[in-house]
Every structure is written in C-alpha cells, then in structure tokens.
C-alpha cells in the first residue's frame, strides 16, 4: 500500500445561515486508505463529504489535491475528477441499468471497449439479470450495487460514501461490504460517513469523529457514544 497523501484539508469552515456546521476541519487522506467518519446525525458528515467531492463550496480553508491549486474553481475541477460521491440514496437516471452504467464510462472509449467494460462491471456487481430493467424500479440493494458498479467503472482515486449501508438488509450489507472491499483492493481511498460502522469494520483503517465542527481521532472499531457529553475532550487531529 502506498503511503502518499492524496488530499490535504486545512482550516475548512462551512456555515448554513447562523449554524456553523464545520468549524475547523483538518485532514490528510492517504492513498488506498479507508477512513470512517463518525458522529451523530446533523454533525456535518454529509457536508464534509460533499465538500471533499467538489459538490459544495467551503466558506474558508484550504484543500490541496497535490498540485497546490488555490482557486476554488480549479480545486473543484480536480475534486470532481478525482473523487466520486455516492449519495445515501443513490440516484438512478431514467433508463435501464445498462444506461446507468454506461453513463460512468469516459467518452473516449470505443463502442467495443464500452460494451466489454459494462459487461465486466455487471459481472462484478451481479447486475447481469437486471441489465435491461428500468433503474427507477430497482430495490435499495440493487440501486446500491448499480451505484458501486458505476464507481468501479469510473475508477476515481477517492470514493466518498454517505451512509452506504443505512437502509439495507443483512444480505445487501454483506454484498456491499464485499464490493467495497474489492474497490479498496484496486487502490481506491474510501471515506465512509457512518454512525454505525460495525458491519464494515474489516474495511476501516482509521476512525475520525466529527464533533462540534472538528475532527477528532478515535479508537477504531469502538462503538461511538451518541451523546456528546460522553466524548473525550476534543483534540485536534493533524497529520
């Protein structure tokens, strides 16, 4: 596993109206690592993931994807190129499963290559039987698999997952874990927002807790207390 830093985040702040969601986010993301972001609902996990994916603009702070760019427009472009954000409930385009997979492919591929890649992705995620089903009619588990297959096709350097297993049954969770493990093995870095990460524990290298707008390092695999009063005193995490 390579140990180089993919992403450096310094002093990132974000507020919605009067509510200061992110106060001082400091973070380094290593290549091929899986990071788990804990914290109660409303702590700002989703916001942070969206900022790191280039979908939301921070109010302040520095994000460096390794090329030293400062202007947000450029940073956003780099983030959109390098990361893939998976919504808690994946969005399916109006079309077949196949259409949804093809969307994630780069345009430069030839028709044959595209067909080949889509077929591989379907085998990988077990989507072959539903390839021509309308994606809008899929179950939650199937949607999750389509969404992961898109990630497999897109091959971003970082994958931002917002509660990937929150609404799934046991079987779907198991399959999701397998697919995520497989993605991680390709060298992808994962950032998992989850307040209940136990069933994903084999995947996780490092746990951070988002508390009062700051990231706090915690013990891996420990069940997080949901009430902030039980937390250790906030400690700023640095690289």
């Amino acid at each position: 596993m390579k140990d180089d830093i993919l992403l450096t985040v310094r002093s990132v702040k974000k507020r919605f109206g009067r509510r200061e969601v992110l106060r001082e986010i400091e973070l380094d993301l290593k290549s091929g690592h899986c990071l788990q972001l804990g914290g109660p609902n409303g702590a700002g996990k989703t916001t942070l993931l969206r900022i790191l994916s280039g979908l939301e603009r921070p109010d302040q702070g520095l994000i460096d994807c390794g090329d030293g760019r400062i202007a947000w427009k450029r940073i956003r472009r780099r983030l959109l190129e390098q990361t893939l954000y998976l919504h808690q409930q994946p969005y399916m385009f109006d079309g077949t499963v196949r259409y949804n997979l093809a969307y994630a492919l780069p345009n430069r591929l030839s028709a044959n290559e595209r067909e080949e890649r889509i077929k591989q992705a379907m085998d990988w995620a077990g989507l072959e039987p539903i390839r021509n089903t309308s994606a809008k009619e899929l179950s939650g588990g199937e949607r999750q698999r389509v969404s992961l297959a898109r990630a497999w096709l897109r091959q971003p350097r970082m994958l931002m997952l917002d509660e990937p297993t929150a609404n799934l049954d046991r079987e779907s969770r198991r399959r999701t874990l397998n697919l995520l493990t497989s993605l991680k093995e390709t060298g992808m870095s994962l950032v998992l927002a989850s307040h209940d990460p136990l069933h994903l524990s084999t995947l996780i290298d490092r746990c951070l807790l988002l508390h009062e707008g700051r990231l706090v390092e915690t013990e891996p695999f420990k069940i997080m207390p949901l009430s902030p009063s039980h937390l250790p005193s906030p400690m700023r995490f640095t690289a």
Partner: peptide
C-alpha cells in the same frame, strides 16, 4: 428533477454541458 441527478452526473465525470443535457433528459 431531483438535485441528485445533477450531482450524480457531475461526480460521475460529466462536464457542465453534459450534466445539463442529462437533467433535461430526466
């Protein structure tokens, strides 16, 4: 159209123009 349509398109590597036409398609 769900806002996630635009975001999903963008995060999957679509430029603004392609994302725009995707939303229109939706």
């Amino acid at each position: 159209v769900d806002r996630r349509a635009w975001e999903t398109a963008r995060t999957l590597g679509a430029g603004p123009l392609r994302a725009f036409s995707t939303v229109i398609r939706e």
